[in-house]
Amino acid sequence: MKKLFLLGLVILLFAACEQKDTRYTQNSPEIDMVKKVIEDYNSKDYNMNVIADTSKTFFNNKKNPMSKTELVAYHKANDANYSKRGFTGEDPEYEMVVTDDGETWVNAWLDWQATLKGSGKVIDMPVHLTYRFADGKIVRQVGMWDPTEVILGLQEIEAEKAMSVDEKTIKSTIDAVVKAWNANDQKTMATLMTDDMVRTANGTVVAKSPAEYGSNLMDVFFTGFPDFKVTLDDYKIIGNKAIINWTCTGTNTGTFQGKSTNKPIKTHGLSIWTIEKDGRASREDAYYDNLTLFQQLGYMPELQ
């Protein structure tokens, strides 16, 4: 009797597992259909044969659905903003779930990347998509992602279009300076500066010529951090001055202040650049927190 009881229990557990497997899977015809939708999106093929004509699509909202026709128009309108865009195929995850109410849903967690046509800025962000199936068709799809970086990028493009000629000259100089920094191109950097260029750091003069800018700054940082990189986070142009917020990163694999720690650094700062009428920079006043930099390198203990 005991053996029969145990055998019955095993059968019940097996049946429960079988039932669970039918409720959740990562391999199904529905998942293959979603993968085809993603593939078609990447190739800009909007025939959408697997989507029902009566389907409803919700992107970053839950009250204003798009019809199938509106969805196609939405994608085509957005495509105009990018020189290229699509899901990268980097670590995608798919699952199919059957709810207690018998509804079949496919969830997808994907990585999406695009290059803005007007600026060349690359945007990379995670996207969650979920699809409900009925009678072999997608009848509902929901997409959620953070559009902030895209919106800000498009706003920057529009702001640049509205710039005066002088503002465009200043912005062009700043972009060239950042590019020269990242390439450690001191020759190009010198052409972007007046002969009497002055650079201060937290109020202290550290360079009084393009040559000193190269030897006292660029040489120092690229010797200590061979992978040194400057990123322009934000900027504002007022008159002939550009106020920029920047981030610097690098790894201390070289010698910096007599040490090589192999530690990464990331520091933020603000610079005020003065640009002359010929587009060359005559002054940079930089402000940043040296304490944070030294703490990241382990030169001093963290403050409590």
Rank of each mutant, 00 (worst) to 15 (best):
8 G>K: 04
11 I>A: 13
15 A>R: 06
17 C>I: 15
21 D>S: 15
29 P>H: 10
41 Y>G: 01
43 S>D: 07
44 K>L: 00
50 V>Q: 11
51 I>L: 05
54 T>Q: 15
58 F>E: 06
67 S>T: 15
70 E>S: 07
73 A>T: 00
75 H>K: 00
77 A>N: 00
78 N>V: 00
82 Y>E: 01
91 D>N: 11
91 D>M: 09
92 P>G: 01
95 E>P: 02
96 M>N: 04
97 V>T: 12
109 W>K: 08
114 A>V: 15
118 G>Q: 13
123 I>T: 04
124 D>P: 01
124 D>T: 14
129 L>P: 00
139 V>G: 09
145 W>H: 05
147 P>Y: 04
147 P>E: 03
151 I>H: 02
154 L>A: 01
160 E>S: 12
173 T>K: 00
177 V>N: 13
182 N>T: 05
197 M>Y: 15
201 A>L: 12
208 K>P: 04
214 G>Q: 02
218 M>W: 11
220 V>M: 08
223 T>P: 03
229 K>Y: 03
231 T>K: 12
236 K>I: 07
239 G>M: 05
240 N>H: 14
241 K>N: 09
245 N>P: 01
256 F>M: 02
268 H>V: 14
270 L>G: 00
271 S>A: 14
288 Y>C: 02
289 D>Q: 02
289 D>Y: 13
290 N>Q: 06
291 L>W: 14
291 L>Q: 03
293 L>F: 13
294 F>L: 10
296 Q>S: 10
303 L>E: 12
